[in-house]
Amino acid sequence: MSAAAGGHSAATLYEAAKLPCACDPGLRAAWAGAKVAGPAFTVRGIGGDNLALHNAVLAAPAGSVLVVDLQGAAYGHWGEVLAVAAQHRGILGLVVDGGVRDSEEMAAMNFPVFSRHVTVVGTVKDYPGDMRSPVRVGGVVVHTGDLVVGDADGVVVLPQDSAAAIISRADQRVADEQRIIADIRAGKTTLELYGLKTEGSW
């Protein structure tokens, strides 16, 4: 995982955040192994129209992740051509509440994409989009600058002003988990380590 997230997984950051910051599980990696972490650049478009994405590729700064509200529409709003253009401009990846296509091509070029659908259905190009305004993606409100992290387990969004503190707590969680794993390998049980009730103790 990118240094932007302290090297932590989406699951670890979610647990450390103690916030409702996980996008719903319908939003997932468009290709196996995709991972992304970086500051959001928010985009609002209209489902079935991908002009906003063409504009976003030009507007977003290098090192950002496009986070796009397309109302969950099942259209192929994004594909290989836009991925090449985005990668050329230094954009780290895409999280879109909508559909994409060309998943194998994007996997081959290692451009991470998280979407609700993978579909060949085409789009029009009429609505130029709204950039940098808050959007709702996967049920989570995202602001430009929030830290977005996606991997095989899902996508989380950490508020910009608390991301550093969350990453610090995630560091501690990982250290604690490593101690627990060492204890399990030494013979202790998860029931002992977590203080859980044993069978018949109800």
Rank of each mutant, 00 (worst) to 15 (best):
G150F: 14
V118D: 05
K18A: 05
N55G: 13
Q71F: 11
G93F: 04
A16P: 09
E104T: 10
L158F: 07
K188V: 00
G139Y: 11
Q160R: 13
G26T: 03
A52G: 08
G129A: 09
E15N: 14
M109L: 12
D151S: 13
G6A: 00
V141N: 04
E199A: 15
L58C: 03
E192I: 00
G47I: 07
S9L: 09
R179A: 15
Q87L: 12
K35R: 14
L191N: 12
V68R: 03
V156R: 13
D153S: 15
G145E: 04
L51R: 10
G99H: 01
A83N: 11
L191E: 13
G90V: 07
Y194E: 06
L19P: 01
A3Y: 04
D102Y: 00
H88Q: 10
N110M: 13
D49G: 08
N55L: 01
D176C: 06
S64Y: 06
V142D: 09
N110C: 06
A170V: 09
Y14M: 10
G200N: 11
F114D: 09
V57T: 12
D146L: 08
S103A: 15
D146M: 09
K197H: 08
V157L: 10
G38V: 11
A22L: 14
G139M: 10
G99V: 01
A4L: 10
A22R: 15
R101Y: 01
A163S: 14
S162V: 12
G26N: 03
I181K: 14
L94H: 01
G93V: 05
I181F: 12
V81N: 02
R169C: 00
A107I: 00
A30V: 02
A186K: 12
V100E: 07
L13A: 08
G90H: 05
D161V: 04
